[in-house]
Amino acid sequence: MQSNTATEKPPVTKAYNGKDRNDLLFGWNPQAELWNGRFAMIGFLAYLLWDLNGYSVVRNLLHLVG
């Protein structure tokens, strides 16, 4: 049976600069950036839902200032 190279999936890269991506690494690394983005999306969604329910920090601050 012949394999078609156009439909084969590429091998998964398990290392980043010779280190495992899921190792506990400190500082700026791809894994930390993924988690930072995920938490930012969760926080933005939580604030959006909070604002849609009528509790808005920004709106309350504008009323206090103006």
Rank of each mutant, 00 (worst) to 15 (best):
L62C: 13
E8A: 14
Q2Y: 12
P30E: 01
L49F: 12
T7P: 00
R21I: 13
F39P: 00
L61N: 05
F39W: 06
G43C: 06
N36W: 09
V57S: 10
P11L: 13
F26L: 08
S3C: 11
K14R: 04
Y16W: 08
F44P: 07
N29K: 01
L45F: 08
R38A: 11
G54Y: 02
A6F: 15
Q2I: 15
L34P: 00
W50R: 07
L25I: 11
V58G: 02
K19Q: 13
L45H: 03
D20P: 00
Y47K: 12
Y16R: 01
Y16S: 01
Y47C: 07
M41L: 13
G37M: 07
S3V: 15
G54E: 05
I42S: 06
H63W: 03
K9M: 15
N17W: 03
Y47A: 11
G66K: 14
D20H: 01
G37N: 14
A46Q: 07
N17K: 04
Y16T: 04
R38I: 15
K19M: 11
L61V: 12
L52C: 02
Q2C: 15
N4R: 09
A46F: 04
R38H: 11
G54P: 01
N22G: 05
V65Q: 08
L64V: 11
V12P: 01
P30V: 01
F39Q: 09
F39G: 05
H63E: 15
G66D: 10
L24K: 08
K14S: 02
Q31D: 08
R38F: 08
R59I: 13
Y47W: 08
R38D: 06
S56M: 02
D51K: 10
K19E: 13
T5V: 15
R21M: 06
E8F: 08
F26Y: 03
N53A: 14
K19R: 13
A6E: 15
V58H: 04
G18A: 01
N60H: 07
A32M: 08
H63A: 11
V58I: 14
W35H: 11
Y55R: 08
T5D: 12
A32T: 05
R59G: 14
G18S: 05
V65E: 07
L64M: 03
L25K: 01
L24C: 06
A15L: 14
N36Q: 08
N22W: 09
L45K: 11
Q2E: 15
P11D: 08
L61A: 09
W28G: 05
T5K: 11
G18Y: 02
M41F: 07
P10N: 07
R59E: 15
T5W: 04
D20K: 01
H63K: 12
L61M: 13
N29C: 03
A6L: 15
N53L: 14
N4Y: 04
N29V: 02
F39I: 09
K19D: 09
K14I: 01
K19T: 10
P11S: 14
A32E: 02
A40E: 09
F39N: 05
Y47H: 03
V57F: 11
F26W: 04
P10T: 02
G37L: 06
L25H: 00
